[in-house]
């Protein structure tokens, strides 16, 4: 088995097999369950049609995925450094790029696990309505670069700051800032500053595209600009992670 696959399986395996990782997944499932139960227990929310429920669920899944990717990303370099296991890994006869891509693939596998965990919830919320399949495709296309982007950002931040606590703090603040349009509501988007922020914030870009596809029934391909913007975000953060990793390795 090549080195990238070995490292990716080790990184993802930590989450999917270890009690620590399983407790994270349990927390994610509990959050999705709580959100689902809110949808039916509140009179106002229970009147949401299926498409709105699927959209809301996709936003929560993407937010939770980004959070998980940040925790994973910070741990991949800063965590290893603090545990003293980074140096043995770097002196192993494996190319640095392979180590790096193995760790990046680990984050991708964790997002895949999160996506699979979310499928029954999405089916339960929107199975009886329209645009569920389009929602799943859009979540995969737009959510993947956004979630991985936050993971790469956390990896780069962890490599630069060299401390899991500091990197986690900075990344969580960035995630909170990115999620502010969701938290503060649509009124924030009416101002000029709000509109600009909407276009440079990857989470808003992805959510606006999901809104267009799931609620407004627009074609998935019509959201190519949004998709490219999320790809640009993951590209920039990938460069940030790679640069940080190489600086650490030096």
């Amino acid at each position: 088995m090549n080195a990238v696959a070995v490292i990716a399986r080790k990184e993802a395996g930590d989450l999917l097999r270890s009690p620590r990782g399983l407790s994270w997944l349990l927390a994610m499932a509990a959050a999705l369950s709580a959100f689902s139960l809110l949808l039916i227990s509140d009179a106002e929310l229970s009147l949401l049609d299926n498409a709105e429920a699927v959209y809301g669920m996709c936003a929560v899944i993407m937010g939770l995925g980004a959070l998980l990717a940040i925790v994973m990303g910070v741990d991949t370099v800063a965590g290893e450094k603090e545990r003293g296991s980074l140096v043995p890994l770097l002196i192993a006869p494996v190319a640095r790029d392979r180590i790096l891509f193995g760790k990046l693939a680990g984050i991708a596998m964790v997002w895949a696990a999160m996506y699979l965990l979310a499928l029954p919830y999405l089916w339960a919320a929107g199975g009886a309505g329209q645009n569920l399949a389009e929602g799943l495709v859009s979540l995969a296309l737009l959510g993947t670069p956004v979630v991985l982007g936050f993971g790469f950002l956390a990896m780069g931040m962890g490599a630069r700051l060299g401390s899991t606590r500091s990197a986690l703090m900075v990344c969580l603040v960035i995630l909170l800032l990115a999620a502010s349009p969701v938290i503060l509501g649509p009124s924030l988007r009416q101002t000029a500053v709000g509109r600009i922020f909407d276009w440079i914030n990857p989470l808003s870009v992805a959510l606006n595209a999901l809104d267009a596809v799931i609620i407004d029934s627009q074609a998935v391909v019509s959201q190519w600009l949004h998709w490219n913007l999320t790809l640009l975000f993951s590209g920039i953060t990938l460069w940030f992670a790679r640069d940080g990793f190489y600086r650490t390795a030096l």
């Binding site: 009690p19 369950s33 949808l39 929310l45 949401l48």
Partner: peptide, 29 residues
């Protein structure tokens, strides 16, 4: 009438998924 979120679908999923992972966690511990 409007098609809305159905509690008959949500409740089994919302309860069984965390229980399944909790069971897996206990078994692993």
């Amino acid at each position: 009438q409007k098609p809305v979120v159905e509690s008959s679908r949500i409740v089994p999923v919302a309860l069984s998924a965390p229980l399944l992972i909790a069971g897996l966690l206990i078994w692993r511990l």
